[in-house]
Design a binder for these strands. Structure first.
Lengths: 345, 345
DNA sequence: TTGCAACGGGAATGCGCTTTCCCACATGAA
DNA sequence: TTCATGTGGGAAAGCGCATTCCCGTTGCAA
C-alpha cells in the first residue's frame, strides 16, 4: 500500500506542506481560494488519499471504535453491531471488529489490539460471566481494560459492568433491564397459565442468564406461584435443543401443560426444534417463551412469545450516541404461549 | 488515547530506542537475554502498548482488512463476515467494518476510508448491480477500487466482478455458481412438481438475482418445461412479503398448486409470511423454495427447500484464506416443496 | 601479539502528517 | 510617514516507531 503523499501534492501545487495540509484536511486556517484550488487540483491529479495512520499519529486520535462480540453471525450480536456501526458512521468513525466466542482471554487480546490501534473507544457486547473457569481470564481482561481507560480510552459495556474492573472511570455501562423484564414476562404468563413453569437457562454465572432467571422467579413469586425448576444448558440454540430432548418424555407423560421460559430466543427455538419430532406441539402440549425478540425469528411459527429488546439502540448507546433513547424493552405475548381453546385433540 | 511510548520504556530500561524496539516487536536481531529482560520488565511496569499506527507508518503495512457489506444484521452478510473475521484472525489482522445499504456511492466512500487507513486488502460482499440509477455510483466505485489496487491493494469480491473495473490486477473474485445451482434446483423441482412455476426475483440488474433467475429458467427449459413468470420486487424480506400479498388471491383462485422460487431465503420467508394470514398454506396450497440456506432460518417450518451456500467459506476465500476449499453449493429439498399425499382437506 | 570477522548496542533518519512558531507583507490609524 | 495590527504562507518540530548505518567489543586464527 503505497500512494502519493501530501508533500508530492504540495510540490505539484507549488505550495508548502503546511498549506497543502490546511487545504485538504479541514484545518481552522483556510488558505486563499486560488491557492486552495491549485492544491485540490494537484491532489485530484495525483489521486491523493490521505494516510489516516499518519494523521492519527500526528493528532493522536484514530477515529476508530472497537467492537467485541462473541459471534458476529449470531443475530443478537449482529443487531447490536448494526447499531454500533450506525453510531460510528454518524460520528465519522470506523468500526474495528473482533469475535471472541466469549472467552475472556480472547477478549483481553482484542482489547489489547484495539488499544494498540489507539481506538477512541471500545464496545464490549458479550455477556459477562463469573464462572470459575473464566476467573483468570476476567481478571486479565479487567486489567487490560483498566489500563486502556487509564490511558484515556472509553469503553461501553452492554449489560453488566466488567467483572473485576477496579475503576468506573471511562466505563459506560448500557444497562439492560433483564431482571425487570423477565419478571414482567412471568407476571403476564402467570395470568393465563395456571400450571407448572420451567426455565431453560444458560450456565450458572452468566449474568444475562442469571438476571433473567432471577427476574422470572421473582415474577412468579409475586404472582403467588412456586418457583420454577431450572435446567442449565448452553446459552445457544444447541443448548436449547439438548434441553428440549431432555424434556420431551416428561412433557408427554404429564397431563398438564408445561410453560417453558428459555432465557433467549435462539434457545427457545432450539427447544422447539427438539420437541417437534417427538410429537410435542407448541402451544398445544406445552407453551414457550424466549427473550430478545430477534428480528430474523419473527416469522417463526408458532410466533414466539418473548421480550423485545431494542438491540440496535443498545448498540448505539454503547457506542456513545447521545440521541438514542434509553433502553426499554417490552413483553410480547404471541402464539407460542397462547392457551388453546380446550379442544385438545 | 495517550499511553507510554517506546522511548519511555527504553529510558527506564537504560537502553536505546533501537534495542527496545528489537526486544518488544519481533525483529530479526535478538538482543542479549539480560537486556531483553530489563526491557520487558520496563515495558510491563509502564503498561506499554505498542502504537500500531506508528508501526504501520514505519513499516507501511497496517494489518487491516476492510469488509464492505450491505447490512451487517442481515444473516447472509453476517455469515460471510464471520468467515472474513476468522480468516483475518488467522492472518493476525483485524477487520474494519462498513455497512453501506448497497449504495455504490457509500461503497466508494468506504473504499476511500479503507484506502486512507492503508488496509492491506478489502473484501466487498454486496451484490453488484447494473441498474441505471447505480451507473454513476458504480463508475466512481470502480475508479476508487482501481486506484486502491494500483497502489498495491488487494480486493476480494464476492460473486461478480465490480462493474466497470478497468483492470483485473489486484482483484480476486470469489465465484458463486448461482446460475448452475439455480438450474439444479429447477431440475430437481421439475422432477416432482408438474404444475406452473413462478419466480419472485429482486430488481432487474442485480447480478445475484439475475443469475439465479437465468439459471432457474434454464433448468426448467432443460426439463422441457415452459419458462416461469417473474415477479420483481425488493431483494429482502419486505420484497418477498409484498410479492406474497400480490400472489395470494391468484393462488387461492387457481386449482393447481404453484411452485414459487424466491431468489433468496429471506424473500421466501417474506412470501410465506404474507401468504399465511391469507389462509394459503405451504406446501398444501403452494410450494416454495429459496436460496442461501441461512442458518438462522433452518428451524423455520415448513422447512425451506433451498440451495446451500457455504457462506462462511465464501468469506474466508474472499479474505484470501488459501486453505479454504472452493465454493460448492448443494440443493436441499425440504418440506416446503414436498408434494403432499393427495388428501387435501 | 596482531588482524579480521562477527556480534551487539546506539545514533540518526524517515514514514506522512499536524501544528506551532516565525516572518513577510498589507492595512489602518495616529 | 510610522508604528501597531492583522493576514496568510512557510519552516520546522514533533507524533511513535522501524531500520539503516556506524562503532566499540569480543573471539579466534595466524
Amino acid at each position: 500500500m503505497a500512494a502519493s503523499t501530501l508533500s508530492e501534492v504540495a510540490r505539484l501545487a507549488g505550495v508548502s506542506l503546511a498549506t497543502a495540509s490546511r487545504v485538504l484536511n479541514g484545518s481552522s486556517r483556510k488558505p486563499a481560494e486560488d491557492i486552495a484550488g491549485r492544491v485540490r487540483d494537484a491532489a485530484e491529479k495525483l489521486g491523493y488519499v490521505p494516510n489516516a495512520q499518519a494523521q492519527a499519529l500526528a493528532k493522536s486520535s484514530s477515529g476508530l471504535i472497537g467492537l467485541i462480540v462473541h459471534d458476529i453471525a449470531d443475530p443478537y450480536f449482529s443487531a447490536i453491531a448494526r447499531g454500533v456501526q450506525e453510531a460510528a458512521r454518524q460520528q465519522n468513525r470506523m468500526v474495528l471488529l473482533a469475535s471472541t466466542s466469549g472467552a475472556p482471554h480472547d477478549e483481553k487480546e482484542a482489547v489489547a489490539a484495539f488499544a494498540a490501534r489507539r481506538a477512541d473507544s471500545i464496545v464490549i457486547a458479550g455477556s459477562r460471566s463469573v464462572r470459575a473457569q473464566d476467573k483468570q481470564g476476567n481478571t486479565e481482561l479487567a486489567a487490560e481494560l483498566d489500563r486502556y481507560c487509564r490511558n484515556g480510552g472509553h469503553v461501553g459495556v452492554v449489560g453488566h459492568p466488567v467483572v473485576g474492573a477496579s475503576t468506573t472511570e471511562g466505563y459506560h455501562v448500557v444497562k439492560v433491564p433483564n431482571e425487570e423484564l423477565a419478571a414482567g414476562l412471568a407476571a403476564e404468563l402467570a395470568a393465563t397459565h395456571h400450571g407448572e413453569f420451567l426455565i431453560v437457562a444458560g450456565p450458572e454465572g452468566l449474568y444475562t442468564s442469571d438476571d433473567r432467571v432471577r427476574g422470572f422467579q421473582r415474577g412468579l413469586t409475586d404472582a403467588g406461584r412456586p418457583a420454577a425448576e431450572i435446567i442449565r444448558t448452553g446459552f445457544n440454540r444447541a443448548g436449547g435443543y439438548d434441553a428440549g430432548l431432555a424434556l420431551a418424555d416428561r412433557i408427554k407423560a404429564s397431563k398438564e401443560r408445561l410453560c417453558i421460559f428459555a432465557v433467549n430466543d435462539v434457545m427457545a427455538i432450539g427447544v422447539t426444534a427438539a420437541l417437534r419430532p417427538e410429537g410435542v406441539w407448541i402451544p398445544r402440549d406445552a407453551t414457550i417463551a424466549g427473550f430478545d425478540d430477534i428480528e430474523t425469528l419473527r416469522d417463526f411459527r408458532p410466533a414466539l412469545s418473548t421480550v423485545h429488546l431494542p438491540l440496535e439502540d443498545i448498540g448505539r448507546l454503547a457506542a456513545g450516541d447521545p440521541d438514542t433513547p434509553p433502553v426499554s424493552g417490552a413483553v410480547k405475548l404471541r402464539r407460542s404461549t397462547e392457551t388453546p381453546v380446550e379442544s385438545q385433540v
